[in-house]
């Protein structure tokens, strides 16, 4: 067998490789708590966190029992509403400003100035405008996710080879045809990057928005756990956000690959 055709063993190794680092981390964590190198009130053991997680997810006796589903539903709806708003604004504006100097000139200074403001600085303003809850969180998520989506769509549109646009126009594509059949596919690698970065940032700002006294959501759960002094529940919240964030990234890339040949057939 030469190196270009993966053997069975090689393929199996590749399937397991992503879990190596989490596995090692878990092992180290277990070892540290087992040996008593860290006191339980600073680092609860994996077993304790697993038990707390089971109660949080499935219900039972104890604080925050069975809150996972409503919390996850609240968080997911906030993330996706914010992310959707960011896409609805960022993609068209980004593509336009990548192609039209007029749009770019009118937007770039403002966009880059607002981009320099840390999202946390917008929190007090958002609280004053929208109050505590859904609207503030969605606002923060939308603002934060807008920039990577906008900037990458812009870079993709700007980098779309004139040769492809000329070819499309020559073969009879009109203005809309050129945008949807040539420009968007040509910009797709950048667009995908922007969307993935945007979704990642959405989760970060979700938690920020939910730390401010919202009754539900994963961020709120972490905050409540802190009030109760339950580090195991804080860790449960963190791990669940990691899992949901990773899953939503997979869903996003799979969805793009399903609906766009240009995302699927990158050489």
């Amino acid at each position: 067998m030469d190196g270009s055709t993966p053997t069975n063993g090689r393929r199996r190794l590749f399937a397991w490789l992503p879990w190596l680092l989490p596995g090692l981390g878990l092992l180290a964590w277990w070892a540290v708590t087992r040996q008593g190198w860290a006191p339980p009130y600073l680092l609860p053991s994996p077993g304790q966190v697993a038990r707390a997680g089971k109660v949080y997810v499935l219900g039972g006796q104890g604080a925050m029992a069975g809150r996972f589903l409503p919390d996850a539903a609240a968080s997911l709806s906030r993330v996706f509403t914010g992310f959707f708003l960011a896409c609805a604004l960022g993609l068209p504006l980004g593509l336009l400003s990548g192609r039209l100097a007029l749009v770019n000139r009118s937007l770039s200074t403002t966009v880059n100035a607002v981009r320099a403001v840390p999202g946390i600085a917008l929190l007090p303003l958002a609280l004053a405008w929208f109050g505590i809850g859904m609207k503030t969180t969605v606002f923060l998520v939308a603002v934060a996710a807008f920039f990577p989506i906008y900037l990458n769509a812009q870079a993709g549109a700007r980098g779309a080879p004139g040769l492809w646009l000329d070819s499309g126009a020559m073969m009879g594509a009109g203005r809309a045809g050129l945008v949807f059949r040539v420009l968007v596919p040509a910009a797709m690698p950048h667009v995908v990057t922007g969307l993935r970065l945007g979704l990642g940032i959405s989760w970060a700002y979700l938690v920020l928005g939910e730390l401010t006294g919202v009754p539900d959501g994963l961020g709120a759960a972490i905050m409540d756990a802190r009030m109760l002094g339950r580090l195991d529940l804080i860790l449960v919240g963190i791990l669940l956000i990691a899992v949901l964030g990773r899953l939503s990234d997979r869903v996003l890339t799979l969805g793009l690959k399903t609906f766009f040949a240009s995302a699927r057939r990158l050489p």
């Binding site: 070819s167 020559m170 073969m171 797709m188 240009s262």
Partner: peptide, 14 residues
């Protein structure tokens, strides 16, 4: 008026 370019001008996603 259609053109055949010197460079590869096919759409790589099609």
């Amino acid at each position: 008026r259609c053109m055949v370019f010197q460079e590869d001008a096919l759409f790589p996603w099609l």
